[in-house]
Design a protein around this nucleic acid. Structure first.
Lengths: 222, 222
DNA sequence: GGTTAAATAGTAGTATTACTATCATATTTT
DNA sequence: AAAATATGATAGTAATACTACTATTTAACC
């Protein structure tokens, strides 16, 4: 398989896909952000790992926030890609939604090694860091520049499936964003606040989210 | 009224409630974080506003993250206080949950001026910054130190009300955290991502969350 | 095949941030 | 009046988040 995820919106200065250094930046920034957390992550530390320099990294990304936006966007596009592949195989909207729930609650798959991207580490970054991509004072400017398009495309895609299940439901995108944000948030709570989530056992989180989704839509789960 | 919110867990070095400078730090840090966002907020900027020095602020809080934890904790304790007052007046659990939904979706109340705390600004901080209080590499150490107790107390209090409505529901705290996080997240989306939430009109967000809550519990809303 | 232009890598420097340490002074407590 | 405490003033440091400039490699053209 040699499909590549091409992001339509450029939060980069120079496309990291095009060069060796660019790919090393992506590959190792995922590992390093996962290790250190976004706050302690710096371009200098990254550069020393990939035997390059701070200035070289800056030629690809204006700052580490733009890099985070790139990584998170890549994740949502990758998710959308996997859903699209699956959606060709199944037809009932309920089956599609179940697969969607499965994908967002699973830390990583066998097929998650996508070229130079460590999907498991990237999933953890989404769990721990993704709200930081939009919880900034630059959010409106970033939004205007289209930096959250991957997420929006994904949300609208699932919203349409939600409407196939219940076309009268008035809040489809609010429901989908709630499900997505809750999925990742609960994964964080399971790891760090034992008393704040009962979805500890395998499959529980999926069941919990399924109950919310079909409960809100007022239909029985498939 | 002269009730004061006393936080049981000290994320401070010296209690800001005790002194004039301490209260000025709280009052103005709320206004300044609201204005600048947490990233651009610094103790130096704060000190210059309150005609003090960086070193003096550092005598109250070890760093700005501990200050954020203090402010957010104060907010949850304030919320818990208001809910407790109301819960004495009503008796049906559904009424309690409805009041809970109302409080978390309302940006500020008439009674929200609580001494030197601007409740409206603090509400905005919770919307925009609260996940940053726990999405750090220090989360486990901070949790061990009890820094998230106010939030946990609130969640467990509401979870118990949820169980009054449906004692067989298996995920009460997961449901309550999902409702809370979604409430604040949707408020952010309404302001910044118009296409990602349909809950634009007054009361819509409450209705949306009510649908999720009672839908998951599989009972009709009151 | 050699000259020139463009792309990329590497070096060095700056302003700001996030602190820490020290000392002086004002205020409060005993 | 002495002692303890709170605040202020000043200075200094290591790290961060960049920017500007120089060196080298690669590509493009005649």
């Amino acid at each position: 398989m040699n499909v590549s995820i091409q992001l339509k919106v450029k939060s980069f200065i120079r496309d990291p896909n095009d060069t060796d250094l660019g790919r090393k930046i992506i590959e190792n920034s995922i590992l390093l952000i996962d290790q250190l957390g976004f706050e302690a992550f710096t371009f200098k530390k990254l550069a020393s790992i990939i035997d390059s320099t701070e200035a070289s990294v800056y030629r690809y990304f204006e700052n580490k926030h733009k890099l985070l936006i790139y990584l998170i966007s890549w994740y949502w596009s990758w998710l959308e890609y996997r859903l699209n592949v699956e959606f060709l195989k199944v037809h009932k909207p309920e089956q599609k939604l179940d697969f969607f729930l499965k994908v967002i609650t699973t830390p990583g798959n066998v097929d998650s090694e996508f070229k130079f991207v460590n999907g498991v580490a990237l999933h953890r970054i989404v769990v721990s860091e993704s709200p930081k991509a939009f919880l900034t004072k630059d959010v409106d400017a970033d939004n205007k520049d289209g930096y959250f398009r991957s997420y929006k495309v994904l949300v609208h895609m699932i919203s349409n499936v939600v409407l196939e299940v219940n076309s009268a439901y008035p809040y489809p995108t609010a429901l989908v964003t709630t499900i997505i944000e809750s999925a990742y948030n609960q994964q964080y709570f399971i790891d760090h606040f034992k008393t704040l989530s009962e979805t500890r056992k395998k499959g529980d989180l999926e069941k919990f989210l399924s109950g919310i989704l079909y409960g809100a839509l007022n239909v029985k789960p498939s």
